[in-house]
Amino acid sequence: MLNAILHFLESTGFYGITFGHVIMIAIACVLLFLAIVKGFEPLLLVPIAFGVLLTNLPFAGMMAPPVLEIHENMVHTVEPGGLLYYLFQGDHLGIFPPLIFLGVGAMTDFGPLIANPKSLILGAAAQFGIFITFIGAIASGLFTAQEAASIGIIGGADGPTAIFLSSKLAPHLLGAIAIAAYSYMAMVPIIQPPIMKLLTTKKERAIHMTQLRDVSKKEKILFPIIVTIVVSLIVPPAATLIGMLMLGNLFRECGVVGRLEDTSKNALINIITIFLGVTVGATASAENFLRVQTLAILCLGVIAFGIGTASGVIIAKVMNKFLRVPMNPLIGSAGVSAVPMAARVSQVIGQQEEPGNFLLMHAMGPNVAGVIGSAVSAGVLLSLFGG
């Protein structure tokens, strides 16, 4: 009887819990607090935080791989493995992030970008944060080129792209990179405004912009087709993300596949968001997360995000030197691909200086350009370091 009681006690999570587990469970609770109470990107942070919680419960085995044995040239399953291990294969094999892009494409109006092609420059400028941070990560001596590339992509403020790239180049850092990427996406309204105000004058922030021209349906249909062909020919590794993004957008704009559009931007993206979030969080086990590298990733990530924001604003100011009709440089900060939060921040800061200033649609141009830019940047890094 005593042995049975001892055996039961040793099988409980309390027996196997470590200080590292306690820290990670506390981190999960903080993320849940930020998502639920503070409203920071709850659709992403709630499943990610709960994934962190689940993977750090001792003996639960949610991410345990199956135990196999070979007998008479036949593979037999001794233990089937944890639920999240199997769902995680969607991250590991690069399936979930492109499906997220399919849904994003179905929800995104590329009209502001088509109406103002100069927005592409601002979207490209915001990608400087990716490559400058990549150089910084290499210079730190803590990371390989593949790891540095995965960290740098945080600067694009695009969670699915960060997951897609790190799953291929540095899967062991996936949890830290994903949590950093989504946390900073959620904190766009906190991180960006001080940078935007520091780099612009009151007069610049009050610049009014003329209404964008109407974009025809033909233009909107041709845009995803042309972008897919051109980008995929220039950077083939970007075809997966760009192709899914543009397919979703074609569903939206062609007007003949309403059911596919509705599924892509509602049911499908919601299901994949649950799977992606929980499994990404589940990679943040205590032994993988509580390392010096993780702290470095969090620091480099916020630097990357800040540089990306600053680059867009600075390039907008430079462009104004050559434009007959100046643009409000605040929209340059929206070049990071946190859609549509970054565009909303531009709108809010603009209206603080001039209540009659409406920058949202103008900011959506560089914002959606940033989505394309981050996918292309990921393709470039994958082609350089994917081996």
Rank of each mutant, 00 (worst) to 15 (best):
N320C: 06
V256K: 15
K265F: 02
L330V: 08
F289K: 04
A304V: 10
F305T: 11
I271D: 08
K317N: 00
I272S: 04
A310C: 05
E253N: 14
I274W: 08
R259D: 14
M244N: 08
L247F: 11
V231Q: 05
N270S: 15
I303T: 13
I331T: 08
A334D: 05
V313I: 14
V302K: 10
G301N: 12
V256W: 13
S264I: 03
C299A: 14
F251M: 15
T273M: 11
P326A: 07
L260S: 10
G258Y: 10
G332N: 05
L247V: 14
I271V: 15
I307T: 01
D262P: 00
V278F: 09
V292C: 03
A282M: 06
I242F: 00
L250Q: 12
T283N: 07
I242L: 00
N266H: 11
P236I: 02
G255I: 08
L250M: 14
V336R: 03
T309Y: 00
V336E: 03
I234F: 06
G258V: 14
I271S: 12
M327N: 14
G248R: 08
F322N: 11
A284D: 08
S285R: 10
M319L: 15
N270H: 11
N270V: 09
R252C: 10
V313Y: 06
T309D: 07
A334R: 02
E253S: 14
A310Y: 01
V257F: 14
I315P: 06
T273S: 09
M244F: 15
C299Y: 10
A296M: 07
F305D: 13
G332R: 08
S337L: 09
T263P: 03
R291E: 03
T309S: 07
V235N: 02
D262K: 12
L241M: 08
N270P: 00
M246F: 00
L300N: 04
C254L: 12
M327I: 15
L330H: 07
V257M: 15
F275I: 01
E253T: 14
G255K: 12
V278M: 08
G277A: 02
L323K: 13
I234H: 02
N288I: 09
G243V: 00
V231I: 09
G281S: 06
K317D: 03
T294L: 02
I297Q: 03
G281W: 03
L247I: 15
R291C: 04
G277T: 02
I272G: 00
V318S: 06
A282F: 07
I272V: 10
V235P: 00
K321H: 10
T273P: 06
I315L: 12
N288W: 11
V280Y: 02
G281P: 11
N288R: 12
I297H: 01
V318F: 11
T309I: 04
N328E: 11
S232P: 00
V339P: 01
N270K: 14
R252D: 11
N288E: 02
N266L: 02
A338M: 13
N266Y: 08
G243S: 01
G243R: 07
S333G: 15
L295V: 15
A310I: 07
G308W: 03
G281D: 10
L330T: 14
N266V: 06
N320R: 04
T279L: 03
S264G: 13
V302G: 13
G332Q: 09
A239Y: 05
A282N: 06
N266S: 12
S311Q: 04
F289Y: 12
L298H: 07
V280D: 11
I315N: 07
I242M: 01
L298C: 11
Q293I: 05
T240H: 02
S337R: 04
